[in-house]
Design a protein around this nucleic acid. Structure first.
Lengths: 199, 199
DNA sequence: TTTTTTACTTGACATACTGTCAATAGTAAA
DNA sequence: TTTACTATTGACAGTATGTCAAGTAAAAAA
């Protein structure tokens, strides 16, 4: 109601997000969040009933700030399947570094907390829809490689651009974001576009 | 020393492994392990100084039982790069389901426990060596796709056959193991083998 | 057979986390 | 001024890990 209530809620969420980005994957306690905001641990519970609720609120907040949907819509104007595929890797590949901390935090609780898992799966479902749109456009244009069923192609596409793969290539192997994007684009085009129909 | 000591140690490790497979990813307490073996929680600490030590011992035990090294050596007799690539996906793709529980348990503690992370990375390093061998054979035969540097090819190959990708395709998307193996083989061959040199 | 060692037991304790509850203090709106 | 809201401290139950001490039971060594 009051703007103050919104403020403290937002401050808690932002502190949580900041901690997620700082302590990649390491679990964050309610006490840590409270200390960062400068309030008591119990005060956090006045705004969020549980750790899970706070994490989900943080996820929703980041979604809103980072406007993934908007970014995805932006390239829906792509005029061909190949352009769609490329835009998909571009947008998503540049988006991942911005949400990496959040993603690690949510993925870390995935096995023990159904609610955060659901929140995360919802995000991944959106990505999957984009993958489906891309594959369906390729198919409609008749350039989807014939060895793939549409469903299998969507699932493989979606798996290839997962955060885990981005993490392994960039964080573990030291690839740059552009290197990741270029290689991934090439791999996906080669895999899903009918070789007979290439220019 | 005595066979009894070995026995109880082994019983604890086997119980831990069983729990890992049953409770995929959900964390296992020392109390759970003790109850499963039928001894007191403190007795577990007589054999393993910490939870971490128990998990690493379990990982080593499984490695020994499942003989990944032996399996990998078995196909080192492959007579060509393409055969090596296929054998790699075959062996690894059939191996993953057998160690999925262990892998999930180790990966879950990865962010908070450096020691288990190191144990897991060691396993993954072995896999990476196999990927390197495959790519180097392809390169020596002159059929590695020219757009890939050897190092990049190894890293992408290694990433493609990661457990996360297997998990997403089989557990989440419902693919069968053979479906996974066939699709992955095709994708990897298409990606890494020079298109001009195909039969 | 008696002693000693080994393996294990129970119970208590320190620490750190989540989540709840009650009593209290300060502040802003009615 | 009274009321409602926000936050505070402190206590508590519950669940973990990990440590410590005292005691038991059985096998190996004397």
């Amino acid at each position: 109601m009051s703007s103050k209530k919104t403020n403290i809620r937002t401050r808690i969420i932002e502190a949580t997000w900041r901690l997620m980005e700082q302590r990649l994957g390491k679990s964050i306690s309610m006490g840590d969040v409270a200390k960062t905001v400068g309030i008591s641990r119990q005060a956090v519970y006045l705004h969020f009933a549980s750790r899970t609720e706070l994490m989900i609120a943080t996820s929703n907040y980041v979604d809103e700030i980072k406007c993934l949907n908007e970014r995805l819509n932006q390239f829906k104007t792509a005029s061909s399947g190949i352009e769609l595929l490329e835009a998909c890797v571009d947008v998503w590949g540049n988006y991942i570094p911005e949400i990496y901390g959040l993603a690690k935090a949510l993925l870390a609780t995935r096995n023990t907390d159904e609610a955060t898992a659901a929140a995360w799966n919802n995000n991944m479902g959106c990505l999957r829809d984009i993958c489906r749109e891309t594959i369906e456009t390729l198919d409609a244009e008749g350039i989807l490689a014939p060895e793939w069923s549409k469903e299998e192609a969507v699932e493989m596409f979606w798996t290839m651009i997962s955060i885990h793969n981005w993490e392994q290539l960039t964080v573990e192997c030291g690839w740059s974001t552009t290197q990741y994007i270029d290689r991934m684009k090439a791999l996906l085009k080669l895999t899903f576009i009918n070789r007979l129909h290439k220019p």
